[in-house]
Nucleic acid binder design. Structure first.
Lengths: 376, 376
DNA sequence: TTGTAAGCGTTATCAA
DNA sequence: TTGATAACGCTTACAA
């Protein structure tokens, strides 16, 4: 097919011997077009390799049929799955997805959101923790997928971190572990996961203490502080540790080391060292995420401790890293595809009726047992 | 800021007390505007939270100032770096980047390229191996970044896999290894890397055999078959092995196991087993990529062999996986940022002058030594 | 330096 | 069931 300037609707109309309006109707699959004309138009389209200009369509039309997806970082392993879910919910409804990370078009736009507003998207999905200064107009439908810090008038669909923490507790208890370490950082997710872990242990000790494993209905943004049995005297001075739950003799107990800062591999290693320095009898470690778990495993190896023979380790997020046979990390799958699908459906609802109240949805995670956890 | 319908250029013009053309001039940073008017316009823009509609801009304007980036898979770890390079080259020149993977808008468009054509992008970057049936009009500027299978009239910017293979050879030789195994799959990249490895060893044996380490100027798409000293009789029957270079007693030698299929972790493990079953005296393994290297490491661990004490292992691509402290894999960095930047610059040149001849650029890789390789 | 007016390629509203 | 014709929001000659 040769190719100078792209064909326009005029070219198609001329070739098919009809008016532009008729071509437009065919394009929109209107049933009020005679089969004869339709065929002629379709053929002309084919022959001219015609493609409607999205610019013209969204300028002239009433809707852009486009939604913008803001990723915090393309490096985030789970965004791919969220995207898959979003596609399932949105694409099939005829919406075009446009993806940008925080830096994609800086220089042209102040933020990805700026760019989306210029495109007149019909809605925006924020994947991950939203920047606080995103400046989205009140009238723009927004949903946060996978983040906890809810934006003012936005729906939220996120993993139930607390439930995940409980699952970790149940898994480790079932394997016979009673002295469990937690290794985390200062994020809401980390805090929730720890809370869940503690709740799970408490439930095992005193079945009446915690209702059950139903998803926690309310999720507050405030990081929850570890609450537990009589606190042991802080034994390590000058560290960044912020929480340390002591154990009651005999009962299952959790010792937590929560470092200030990002949940990196290096932080995981440091936290583990601190954990074992103060509590050498820990037999299982639950890390706030897979990357920290990896750090913990490095630190264990450095100490000559084997995983899982000497110490069991588990992470959170079920990243590709964890899934490799080489690492084989037991982890909690946060069901990112589900989160994406849920977010897409919520956005659709909000586009249809922007006045619907903000809604928070928690997606139940799932434990994936691999090689790094074993019976005690 | 309240917000009904987004403000238009008319609103701005009215509020500033000028004509729309004047506003347009200000938007385009024309110097032929009085400071007084400019201020008035700028202020009106501010107050109305005005944002030009990209649809209208690209409809009315002569150029869309947009380039489309086709990713083969969002999961590919190096695309992020390629994107960074592309940004550096394109964004700063005022081009908007639109990213899609192979499936992003299927259902609406037949392929991501379709979507880009509808948007009237000025150029397209294919990251990774291009689908053969992409159907891009001849007049559309295209460059392939990181892929080898050159499209008809497209520039290509890719890693110099052969040079990377040579670097691996030099690294392992320097560490005292002389019996080297290669673990690969059926891809052009894998073949080139093996060829480089062999060339590197040959150069060490007979310095006159290979010119040096300058980037190979010509890259053919055809997978090169291992060529070397007198071939040993294939010792393993019924396997998928396709190449097996024998060694000359005394001289450095390479034994290669190339499995048919994808270069997965599992393939890496299988290939390593086959390698050691037939050649137990290998002391170093070079894998076609990091994922296969990981598989090889798993298989080594299963055999009770330590890395790097018993066997050194290295990969290719320098993925985040390799960079974790836990894995610490020696790898070849393919300099994806450079590749992206180069691709962006080429695309710019081709947009400026579409008649320029197709050009192939090879980017010199870089070795990153970590824990998995050690002196013999 | 500023304004007027004619497109750009569609959709949408009316008539026919 | 079809066809004119007026938007849509902007750029771009061309005039003033």
């Amino acid at each position: 097919m040769g190719d100078g300037k792209p064909a326009t609707i005029y070219d198609v109309a001329a070739r098919a011997g009809v008016s532009k309006s008729l071509v437009s109707l065919v394009l929109q699959r209107s049933p009020r077009v005679s089969d004869q004309r339709r065929q002629a138009v379709l053929q002309a389209i084919q022959e001219l390799d015609y493609r409607p200009s999205t610019a013209a369509v969204s300028l002239a039309g009433t809707r852009s049929r486009t939604v913008g997806v803001v990723l915090d970082d393309f490096r985030n392993p789970w965004f791919v799955d969220v995207l898959t879910g979003l596609r399932e919910a949105l694409q099939d409804q005829g919406h075009r997805l446009v993806v940008a990370d925080r830096f994609l078009n800086t220089g042209l736009d102040a933020s990805p959101v700026e760019g989306f507003l210029s495109m007149r998207v019909e809605g925006i999905v924020i994947v991950g923790e939203p920047d606080t200064d995103l400046a989205i107009p009140a009238s723009m439908p927004v949903v946060v997928a996978g983040g906890r810090a809810a934006l003012p008038r936005a729906d939220t669909v996120a993993n139930d971190d607390r439930a995940g923490g409980r699952m970790a507790a149940e898994h480790l208890l079932a394997l016979g572990h009673t002295r469990i370490g937690f290794v985390g950082a200062t994020s809401a997710a980390s805090a929730e996961r720890l809370t869940g872990l503690e709740a799970g242990l408490a439930a095992a000790t005193d079945p009446t203490a915690v209702p059950g494993s139903a998803p926690t209905p309310s999720v507050t943004g405030a990081p929850s502080v570890a609450t537990a049995a009589p606190a042991a005297a802080p034994s390590v001075a000058g560290t960044e540790r912020t929480a340390d739950t002591a154990r009651v003799a005999g009962a299952p107990s959790v010792v937590s080391v929560v470092l200030r800062g990002e949940p990196t591999e290096e932080a995981g290693a440091r936290a583990l060292d601190e954990l074992l320095d103060t509590h050498p009898d820990v037999t299982a470690v639950f890390a706030a995420n897979d990357v920290m778990a990896l750090g913990a495993m490095s630190a264990l190896a450095a100490r000559g401790l084997r995983v899982p023979e000497d110490v069991s380790v588990m992470g959170y997020d079920d990243t590709p890293l964890a899934a490799t046979a080489y690492v084989g990390l037991t982890s909690i799958d946060d069901r990112s595809v589900e989160i994406g699908r849920g977010a897409g459906e919520r956005l659709l609802a909000r586009i249809a009726d922007p006045t619907t109240e903000a809604h928070e949805t928690l997606v139940e995670p799932r434990l994936v047992a691999r090689r790094t956890t074993a019976a005690r």
